[in-house]
Design a protein around this nucleic acid. Structure first.
Lengths: 198, 198
DNA sequence: GAATGTATCTTCACTGGTCGGTATACTATG
DNA sequence: CATAGTATACCGACCAGTGAAGATACATTC
């Protein structure tokens, strides 16, 4: 009510994002989301079929913004290819220091929903991670063959998810640095092997 | 009631482990645990202060068994140091194919409880991950200096958590292989740098 | 341009069920 | 009989989901 007419759906999604990411999916009631969005619960059920549907929409809505975040990290960073990749890890480490940072929302959603196989939010999360891997490969394919780019993209994405997980547990940005350095070493090592310049 | 295999407390912990790991902490009620343990809920409250206390005890009880698992992977595997490390990843990939596998229980517990700072289960999880990293360093310190062993142990533990996370999402053992190969490369590369034989 | 019909959006009030936790009493054993 | 452990039965809080009706916007008709 009040703020912006005709955007109830958007406000619901925003509130869902804020609360689900902060407290976890199971820990947040639709009443809480409704209150934060300035809407009654019944309105949520007008725009979304069920809580599961809202959860899936929330996860799907984070796909593009997250890709954009990595893209901006990568493009903004100075230096060579491994430097730019390493900068992504540094930025994640920097973010992990913030009081509102709670790790990777996709990973946490997957961890929570894993025993409801076929949940649309799980599929949306998997799609996102796959897209991120493809995006990484595209950045690497300027220097490497498609096969090498894909293989390296996979290793880097594993290091990214590892960094998120460890950071969530230890809250120590040194782990992000270690992961970034590992990624850079793997890239340089592969370039050396192929006699490519990086 | 039930087949009193072991004390009630032990059965409660075992049921908690089975259900919490399978379905997640928030999704499992004490009633469900009581039923599976062949005990009433009141008995749970005799042995544990609260659900949070039971959760913390569950996490803490998985510490040693998990370390033992890695130890056995490592010792059983043939070959050189990087081969043995890589074998740990291969084994995780093999396990991820099983229908009851649901990723790393410590990571999933942390993901779910992250918004209750100071939760004893979070501390128990962090202690476990720290112990695992120290254990890895001890295995590496036969070959490397303490500083290199610690640095490599950190990178390997990040790859382990990354493998768990990605496997949870994609259920594709190829990711475990990729992570294992990355770990082996990092170790070999470091050995080369130090003129150490592996 | 005023009146009316209609589909869209939102609210209030409610339900059936589940959950964490508890008061109290019973039982087995040494 | 004293203590540790277990059972029955219950509570208040909360939660996902719903029924029915009120509000709003917009198109149609005269």
């Amino acid at each position: 009510m009040a703020i912006a007419k005709g955007s109830a759906r958007q406000r619901i999604l925003q509130s869902a994002h804020a609360l689900f990411y902060r407290r976890g999916i199971g820990a947040v009631s639709l009443d809480a989301i409704a209150e934060q969005a300035g809407v009654t619960k019944r309105t949520i059920y007008y725009h979304f079929e069920s809580k599961d549907d809202l959860v899936a929409s929330y996860v799907a809505s984070r796909d593009q913004p997250n890709i954009d975040f990595y893209e901006s990290c990568f493009e903004r960073a100075p230096g060579s290819l491994p430097d730019k990749i390493e900068a992504m890890f540094t930025e994640i480490g920097r973010q992990s220091r913030g009081p509102r940072w709670q790790g990777c929302g996709f990973l946490r959603a997957a961890a929570e929903l894993i025993d409801t196989p076929g949940h649309p939010a799980l599929k949306a999360g998997a799609r996102h991670k796959k897209r991120l891997e493809v995006w990484l490969a595209s950045k690497l394919s300027d220097t490497f063959t498609p096969a090498d780019a894909e293989s390296l993209a996979r290793q880097v994405s594993i290091l990214l998810d590892g960094a998120f997980s460890v950071l969530l547990i230890h809250r120590d940005a040194a782990y992000a640095e270690a992961a970034g350095k590992a990624a850079a070493i793997l890239i340089k090592e592969r370039a050396l092997l192929r006699n490519e310049a990086v």
